[in-house]
Structure formats: structure tokens, C-alpha cells
Design a protein around this nucleic acid. Structure first.
Lengths: 196, 196
DNA sequence: GCCAGATACGAACGGTCGTGCTATTCGTGT
DNA sequence: ACACGAATAGCACGACCGTTCGTATCTGGC
């Protein structure tokens, strides 16, 4: 890894955390350069537009997400155990990978849901992929007879996402300490329904 | 209503819709003035800071929310019917009250969840109030014996919020037409659990 | 129909934004 | 050790930001 690539990775790492607080649009070349003791133009040269920076921040975050949430769960058994592992790691993800402003993808989703362009397109691809991965895990749960034959995997994926979003909202905005316990209760109810 | 108050209401109306797209921070005095054919300084004079504008936008939106979501449901029977009415009107609320960027409160929640200040404080109060209103409706559902005696009202409120957030995410970002049907399925499952 | 006060305007302020350009420093392969 | 390309810095630009101030226009009560 050459020098350029090293510093660029550092920039992206810090940018992801910053964007989790202020959003991909609130991200600022000047602020970023200040934080990392670089000149604005020096930093800018790594990406050739702000939009390219935003794209790379999302890509960087997705790689991390795969590393700390998805990949480790491949070690657990297929079906329900893996779904539980995903649920657990997913909850720890914002804290564990330096996103002081909460999940970057949640921030980006709300920001980009009506701003067309390549950044939005990328995020949509990422989110679709994540949702269909959840659905796939549910489906293998059916194959393994953990879940009932008629279980709707996409339905479960959307509901699980809802449990996470409500938890995110209640902990981050409302600072409600009981939110996590409620998220777990909701998850158990969902699993119970999947069992049929 | 004097002249000043009239134009100020028009400003807030448009500002709420604009903020639903670009956020309370993305709101811009200049853009607002352009859209409404006012001078920047003339518009600015109505609020004496951008922060005050943001506060009044949130207050304006809350009044509308009460008018189009909450108040009409008081005509329906207490308990489960009222909960269903809330769920229905809640889903129509972004479309029906001119928020082209989706629910302003969702946008604001993600934006403000780590930006301390009076705007955040107001939003937190509003969201707490809304969640406890949902919980109260669930509790009257218990009184009316629609729901089981042990039903956890706050748990149900957080879960219902999750159903709405997942629906918002899936329709707005992912443009998934099946999201609405899934939200309804999730709602029925929640009501089923409340029945015990 | 006048007059005070409310409302709106125009111009200007210091700042920060993203983005070019040119020059300089640095890392690295030979 | 040197040369060459990669990496970074410095400076400038036009645009837009929130905010202020002095002035003009309008409105409503008498």
C-alpha cells in the first residue's frame, strides 16, 4: 500500500465517522483537512470531487460493515443462530466501528432518499443487498426447519430493519435506556412468528 | 391575523416542505426567499435567527400533525379502533401535508440526534409526546379488553414506530412498492400479540 | 386621509463552501 | 544517489451562507 493509499484510507476512516454525525452532505473538505492536518487542496486531490469522496466513504463503510457484522457470522450455524448473530453484531456496529453519530447508513438513507445521483444509487444497491442477505438467512432457516415453511423472508427482513431503526431512534434521539431491551423483545417476537 | 403573521405562516408552510427534503440544516434563508419572492432580509426579519426559524418550522409541523393525524382519530372508538386509525392516518401524513421529502420528523430526528441545542430539545419533547400518546391508546385498549391485561404499551409504541420507520425507508429510499403491504402485515402481527 | 408602527427591501459584512491552478516537497525504484 | 512521478501545499476564484443596518413602503386605527 503506497503512501497515497494509506492517507486516503485514513481520510475515509475519519470521514465516515464525521459523516455519521453531520451527514454526507455536511461533510466538508475544509473540516476534514483541518482534523487531519492536511491542506484543503492536498486532501481534495485524493478524490476529484466531493461526490467522489461521498461515494468512497460509503464504499469504505460497506467494507467495514462486511468485516465486523457479516463475515464473523459465517462462523455460526446457518438459519436461526446466524440470524441471532446478525442481530447482535448489527446492534454493536455503530459503536464498534467509530461512528459517533450513529449508523452512517441510516444517516445517509434519510439524506439521500430524494437526492438522485450516483451516491444515492450506490446506497440503494448496498441497502438492497443487505436486506436480501437478511432474507436469505431467514430462508436457510426455513430449509433447516428452524422456521415454518410459509415464512415470508422479505417480510421478516423489513420488520427486522424496523426493529433496528426504532432502536436507533429511541437510543440516539430519545436517549431511552430501555430501547435495547425492547428491541430484543421485538426480535424474539419476530423469531417466534417465524417458527410459525 | 395581521399581514405579518400571514406571510410568516406561508413561509413556515413552505419551509416545512423544503426541510423535509433537505433537512432543517439544509434549509436556507436565501433559497426560501427565492421560492417565495421575498428578499432575504425581509424574510429573515420574521425570525431573528436561523435557529428560531428551525424551531418555528418544527412547531408549525407539529400543529399540522395534530390536526391531520391525531385530532381526527378522537372521533373513532377508544382502544384498538383508534390505534388502527392512528396507523392509517400516520402513513398518509407525509403525502397529505405537503412534505415531498418524506416525514419531516424522521429527517429531523436523524439530523439532530447528536446536535445539542433548543431545536433538538424541542424535537425530543415532541417525539416523546407522540410515543406516549401511542402508548396511552394501547393502554385504553387494555381497559376496553381489546388487548390482554399484560400488554406492554411502551413496547408496542416503539415497535409501531419501527414498523413506520421501516416502511418509510423501504418506500422512500428503496422505492419498494411492497413495503406498504408488509407494514400492514407487521401491524396486524403486533395487534395480534397485543390481544395476547 | 393622515400618521405611527409594522413590514419589506437593498446593499454590504465576514465566512466558508467546492474547485481549479501552479509550485513545491516527498517516496521510491533503479 | 539520483531522477522521476506521486503527494501535498499555497493561493485564488466565484458562489452562497447567516446576519446587520439604514431606508423605503405599506397597513390599520383614528
Amino acid at each position: 500500500m503506497g503512501k497515497g493509499e494509506t492517507t486516503r484510507d485514513g481520510i475515509l476512516e475519519h470521514a465516515a465517522g464525521l459523516a455519521s454525525q453531520v451527514g454526507l452532505d455536511g461533510l466538508t473538505i475544509g473540516r476534514l483537512a483541518d482534523d487531519l492536518d492536511l491542506s484543503k487542496s492536498g486532501l481534495f486531490a485524493h478524490f476529484r470531487s466531493k461526490e467522489a469522496l461521498q461515494v468512497m466513504v460509503l464504499e469504505h463503510a460497506a467494507v467495514r460493515f462486511t468485516d465486523v457484522v457479516i463475515r464473523p457470522t459465517l462462523a455460526t450455524a446457518r438459519g436461526e443462530p446466524r440470524l441471532r448473530a446478525l442481530f447482535d453484531r448489527w446492534r454493536r456496529w455503530p459503536r464498534e466501528s467509530g461512528m459517533p453519530g450513529g449508523c452512517l447508513f441510516v444517516q445517509a438513507a434519510v439524506e439521500l432518499d430524494d437526492r438522485p445521483g450516483p451516491v444515492r444509487d450506490l446506497l440503494v444497491r448496498q441497502q438492497r443487498e443487505w436486506l436480501s442477505l437478511i432474507a436469505a438467512v431467514v430462508r436457510t432457516g426455513v430449509e433447516e426447519s428452524h422456521f415454518a415453511r410459509g415464512a415470508d423472508a422479505e417480510q421478516a427482513a423489513q420488520e427486522l430493519y424496523g426493529i433496528m431503526l426504532a432502536w436507533h431512534h429511541a437510543t440516539r434521539l430519545l436517549r431511552d435506556a430501555r430501547a435495547e431491551a425492547r428491541a430484543r423483545v421485538a426480535f424474539e417476537a419476530l423469531v417466534g412468528r417465524l417458527r410459525g
